[in-house]
Design a protein around this nucleic acid. Sequence first.
DNA 1: GATGAATGAGTATTCATTCAT
DNA 2: TATGAATGAATACTCATTCAT
Lengths: 188, 188, 188, 188
Amino acid sequence: MQKSKQDYSNIDNKQRIIDAATKLFIKQGAHNTSLADIANDLGISKGTLYYYYSSKSDLIFDVTDIYMKRLSAKLLNWIKGHDSRKQPAEIISVVFKTMFKTTSRGKLHIYLIYEAITHNTALKNRINLAYSKWQEMLEEGLRKILSDKKDPAIIAEIILTMITGGVVHSALGIKMSPMNEVLPPIVE
Amino acid sequence: MQKSKQDYSNIDNKQRIIDAATKLFIKQGAHNTSLADIANDLGISKGTLYYYYSSKSDLIFDVTDIYMKRLSAKLLNWIKGHDSRKQPAEIISVVFKTMFKTTSRGKLHIYLIYEAITHNTALKNRINLAYSKWQEMLEEGLRKILSDKKDPAIIAEIILTMITGGVVHSALGIKMSPMNEVLPPIVE
Amino acid sequence: MQKSKQDYSNIDNKQRIIDAATKLFIKQGAHNTSLADIANDLGISKGTLYYYYSSKSDLIFDVTDIYMKRLSAKLLNWIKGHDSRKQPAEIISVVFKTMFKTTSRGKLHIYLIYEAITHNTALKNRINLAYSKWQEMLEEGLRKILSDKKDPAIIAEIILTMITGGVVHSALGIKMSPMNEVLPPIVE
Amino acid sequence: MQKSKQDYSNIDNKQRIIDAATKLFIKQGAHNTSLADIANDLGISKGTLYYYYSSKSDLIFDVTDIYMKRLSAKLLNWIKGHDSRKQPAEIISVVFKTMFKTTSRGKLHIYLIYEAITHNTALKNRINLAYSKWQEMLEEGLRKILSDKKDPAIIAEIILTMITGGVVHSALGIKMSPMNEVLPPIVE
DNA sequence: GATGAATGAGTATTCATTCAT
DNA sequence: TATGAATGAATACTCATTCAT
């Protein structure tokens, strides 16, 4: 029992670190956030940080992992829950908005992608994995609501690409038209 | 005369610096390229670099500026030159290809956007400006080839968003369907 | 009874620690072996290590102590056992070989000496003690096999110095002639 | 001219750094001397140190190189200058003493060897090179003063081994008999 | 006896920037 | 114009040691 309790607290501490890191990454990007920043934010020593994470990239990986899992969960919820009596554009608009809102949360998405691209590593694979899972989930969800003329695979790909592009544009402050104007030409 | 000649050579030197910087930014990203790297590559001293650029972000700005101008020029060429007898999807596919011929050029795009987002500054405005110009140009070009049912403004926006998203996906190594499969549901 | 049993196990644990430390010191040197390395190797916690050894240098001392005792024992065996009908050079060659069978063991010798020199302490005295004992033992052994013209004290000193030098040279990869070519000018 | 002057001062600065490093290495060993120590000692910033030496091991290499060259020069002087009317033991005693004195200067010799052994690299080769040169030089010198019965190569090897061993012993505080008692059994 | 957690001082290295000449 | 030299603040990472439980 004691052991399990200890494990639990250990996980809690890791979670606390991830939370703080996520918060700071959102503000400044991973590259511009030092381990000292994170330790300071948590009121712990840098040494303690290293007790839980033996390198900065390990930490970045976990931040990414958890972030991606959260997005996947949201997508899954949507697939299970959407009301098929509505218009396709309207339905998809919800996915888009949900993912977009989470995604554009402080540019984290872009920062993590940047890390993946510049420092190669496992991160790229992790993000790739997430994207192919999303592609599958979206396809499955779209199959139920699209007319037979549309290929769910292609539409899913378009939507994913637009989500990524939209996140970047939003971080750049480029204005986007509302979804109910943008989506119809694609899905209807 | 002498002055004008000096100015000219001054501009040449700036251009040389920008070229070297661009080359290195493509390879390693702006953040991971030191001024020493650039100076070395050119065979000049860091001091000389500072004679032409009083800070690293000034240099990054100029690199971005020139890069964006070049992309705009490519887009303009397309508008003037495209053959309106072809299918819309096919035509737009060419835009995409001309703008980001190589993955490495796509990487530069992301790197510069990253700098713009993380270090705020004038860079963001510069990129914004480029994007709105592209939006206009695309709209104008699309007006000639789209059926009346489609709104060129919305389609232009979709295409631009997909270009940005596509560049990112390609840098991540996410497989994309060929444009001529992706675009039809949107433009036809 | 219980107490004695506990003591016994306590000694066993210390011995296990010394064994692991020795193994790692041979590979990486004492300076480059962290207490975490040793604890990991043993599958115990760093805390436990500190239960048995209150500082790293205490541990190094014990490693040295046991190592030196083992070498002394080998030398003693030689003195008791050598066959005086053989040539002196041949006999002494055996001493050398038994003491430093492997280069790795030779490396340990140097590493420990380095610790003794850089961190002064008791270590230097401990090693000194070993060397004077070896000097005595060698003298005694040589007395039996050398011709009367040779002073066993001086010859013993020469041999010990050459052993130390030889160990260092071997660790450096400096080629050495075989002992039976080197020793004759000295002992015969 | 100005260039040559600048080069010269650059070399002077490198020399100043090497001198300070040597001094501190003698006191504490290379491993225990931080670059901050050296910079402080010189009253310059760590950044400046890196202007001249791009890594610590580069600096250690140069310290070793210069130290080895100095020893080689001393040996050369001896070969040119010794008086062949004296007894062999007496002559060699001078080499031994000269090298020994320089060598035992603050344990530097051992520290550098330690670095070579633990951190492999180019250092080992550099030291190896020095040793083989010394072997040759000693051989040449000995050929002139030894009786025909002695093989100069073997005697040179013995002497070098004893120098290395003697340096270590001296750093450990192990007493050595005077050379005129130690050498005769070897060279006469 | 044993351990997990926490620490803080230290270490090599990087880099944009400044400035006298 | 051009540069070599100097800097100092920052950064990721290491490790012996302590201590409450």
